[in-house]
Design a protein around this nucleic acid. Structure first.
Length: 190
DNA sequence: TGCCTGATGTTCT
DNA sequence: GAACATCAGGCAC
């Protein structure tokens, strides 16, 4: 049996971002489970000017250079958290930003964390972190362990995946490392 | 429907 | 001291 860490260690940033589409997060809160399906991702790598790891390993980006299949959580714009799944071998600053997820189970648990429902619940990187109560304390969390586990689903077919340029960045804007599930309403517009 | 802006704090220069 | 992998509310059309 292959561990998540071994699998994501062996994938390049865009391969990891594609592989994550269709996989699920299982978040345990107060003994109850919420499940969400990943529908939009962006790949980042240290050779990439838009990546936090571009300027080398710092206290903030330390976990991006650590073992794969761990969670990199960062705080931005003074009020939002976003989360990434670390990929590549130890010492490589690579990861996949989770931009949007689709609730599968335990939706009311997610709604309790956000004062909203419907599409608005998880259709953005900071929104899904709030819905799943992902905060700074979860930085460096191993995704094979509760209370937040990554569950692999079969890889999606290529005709289900749309590739495009990334959103919300000002450097390396032409790199086509954003991937999303075709025709999914939770994918953010642009 | 779509643009503009304020909120707010961490990180790096 | 400025930039920032964002969101939500307000206002104009």
């Amino acid at each position: 049996m292959t561990s998540l860490t071994q699998l994501f260690e062996s994938l390049s940033p865009p391969e990891a971002a594609r592989r994550l589409l269709g996989c699920e997060f299982v978040r345990t809160i107060d003994g109850r489970e919420a499940r969400v399906r990943i529908v939009e991702t962006e790949a980042y790598h240290q050779s990439d000017a838009a990546s936090h790891s571009y300027n080398g390993r710092t206290q903030r980006t330390d976990v991006m250079f650590g073992p794969a299949a761990h969670l990199y959580v960062y705080f931005t714009y003074g009020m939002h958290y976003c989360c990434n799944v670390v990929s590549g071998p130890v010492g490589t600053g690579a990861g996949t930003l989770i931009r949007a997820v689709e609730p599968v189970e335990g939706t009311e648990l997610l709604q309790r964390n956000r004062d909203r429902s419907g599409i608005d619940l998880t259709n953005g990187p900071a929104k899904l972190c709030q819905a799943m109560a992902i905060r700074r304390e979860m930085n460096g969390h191993d995704l094979e362990q509760a209370p937040l586990r990554l569950v692999l689903n079969p890889a999606l077919e290529n005709d289900q995946i749309v590739e495009s340029t990334r959103v919300g960045i000002s450097k390396a804007v032409d790199v086509p490392w954003r991937f999303y599930v075709k025709d999914n309403p939770y994918v953010s517009k642009s």
